[in-house]
Amino acid sequence: MAEQVALSRTQVCGILREELFQGDAFHQSDTHIFIIMGASGDLAKKKIYPTIWWLFRDGLLPENTFIVGYARSRLTVADIRKQSEPFFKATPEEKLKLEDFFARNSYVAGQYDDAASYQRLNSHMNALHLGSQANRLFYLALPPTVYEAVTKNIHESCMSQIGWNRIIVEKPFGRDLQSSDRLSNHISSLFREDQIYRIDHYLGKEMVQNLMVLRFANRIFGPIWNRDNIACVILTFKEPFGTEGRGGYFDEFGIIRDVMQNHLLQMLCLVAMEKPASTNSDDVRDEKVKVLKCISEVQANNVVLGQYVGNPDGEGEATKGYLDDPTVPRGSTTATFAAVVLYVENERWDGVPFILRCGKALNERKAEVRLQFHDVAGDIFHQQCKRNELVIRVQPNEAVYTKMMTKKPGMFFNPEESELDLTYGNRYKNVKLPDAYERLILDVFCGSQMHFVRSDELREAWRIFTPLLHQIELEKPKPIPYIYGSRGPTEADELMKRVGFQYEGTYKWVNP
């Protein structure tokens, strides 16, 4: 592979701008107003304001973009700056750019259920340069409990009458099928589907988006991507930290609602779906819905739930269990780990287990898709061969690698495990991989909904998990304890083995 010439960040961002501006969906010269509902909250200060700053800094926003914060707290732009700027990672050389960014910011205080507050917000936006005809993007960085009041008031008082209007809704989209349907029906009564952007930030990850290209742009994968060759698929999300004093919020939802029903299920769809007619948003989402419709409700015998306990040999936070978090209700049975087996009941995947695993306070930070292939028929190497695996590593250190057998150097035919490896950090030294939120917010500006969740996708996802969630809430089974920093409950490994996964433990990928 030829040595790549190092590029400056300015040059890299210039390439990104060229890609972005050559499309006809990006209205570079139009006025846009980006409204952050819930501007005083954690999500706004840690993710949304920093993301908008990065896009502005790199010249990736339309030229005439204004940012308006809205929340109940009586704040000023200076207050917003004070709480969000520490997350910007701005350099001293960017000081003038930073001043320009905050000059485009404003803030309006108001209630979430008060019509007069929204009329005041609308008047404020109209007073901005060309504000009355601007395109408006409303980001709901809010708890779902206020979605209905907020969307109703936005629709009645704050819509642009000339430009387009788009609304970005953060997960969780309800707690179960019934609450999700209620919320979807409410929002759909106010906005068209092409105006609604239900954001799952995992769909903005580079390697998640790469799944489609790997599958449908490489001839070698087509013939082997089926039940005849693939023994099982494992989708993993692991965090090495616990709730760390923020367990009160987590306890309301648990690990299945927080990660599995959305992030992991979306990745499953991209692995299992048929080739779409095109890369058009609805063509892709149509195929994802077909996959979900082929999955039956989760069966309790295919589920393992766990909850982390303190590690007596650990240090600091590792010595504390979930129930030691003062914000967690006493005696909570909320799971911090889950392993679930699903089956896609169609011709391509009949009988292939899709194993979804996620948890907190585990032994490493990792998100990946792992396809394990069947054993080689007619073994001539005296059971020395391990199964081939194709691994798409989402985070950290984005990579695609194939675990395969090669001859060990020497005189004899002794096979050993090795890999074919594409590590993004080595291959793409001159490429700026956008943060997931950067990519998705740019998608909203461009009107691309491919990486957002459609209402029928959402409904099918909740259909699969709601009976299990209701059973857990009714019966309150005690989750299996696992030690902070471990791989999780051993019962999860036993479940995976029972459905056909072979864990060798003899080879570990190392970032080159």
Rank of each mutant, 00 (worst) to 15 (best):
M1L: 02
M1K: 00
G14E: 14
E18K: 14
E18V: 03
E19V: 10
L20R: 14
L20F: 13
G23D: 11
D24L: 05
A25P: 15
Q28M: 04
T31M: 13
I33Q: 07
I35L: 11
G38K: 00
D42T: 03
K46W: 02
I48L: 07
Y49R: 01
P50N: 09
T51R: 08
F56M: 07
G59N: 14
L60Y: 08
N64V: 07
T65N: 05
V68C: 06
A71F: 04
R72P: 00
R74K: 15
T76G: 11
A78W: 09
D79S: 13
I80W: 05
E85L: 07
D100T: 12
D100W: 06
F101E: 00
F101R: 01
A103V: 11
G110M: 03
D114V: 11
A115Y: 09
S117V: 10
L121P: 01
L128P: 10
L128Y: 08
S132D: 15
S132P: 14
A134C: 04
A141I: 00
L142C: 06
P143F: 02
T145L: 05
T145R: 05
Y147G: 03
Y147S: 00
K152V: 11
S157M: 08
C158M: 11
M159W: 11
M159E: 12
Q161I: 13
I167E: 00
P172L: 02
G174M: 05
G174D: 11
D176I: 03
L177Y: 13
Q178V: 13
N185L: 08
N185Y: 10
H186P: 00
I187E: 02
F191C: 05
F191V: 07
R192Q: 13
R192D: 15
D194L: 10
Q195M: 07
R198V: 06
R198T: 02
I199L: 04
I199R: 02
I199S: 02
G204T: 03
E206I: 15
M207C: 07
V208N: 07
Q209A: 15
L211D: 00
L214S: 05
R215V: 02
R215F: 01
A217S: 15
P223S: 08
P223F: 04
N226P: 01
E239I: 04
G242N: 05
T243H: 03
T243F: 01
R246A: 03
Y249P: 03
F253A: 12
G254V: 01
R257A: 14
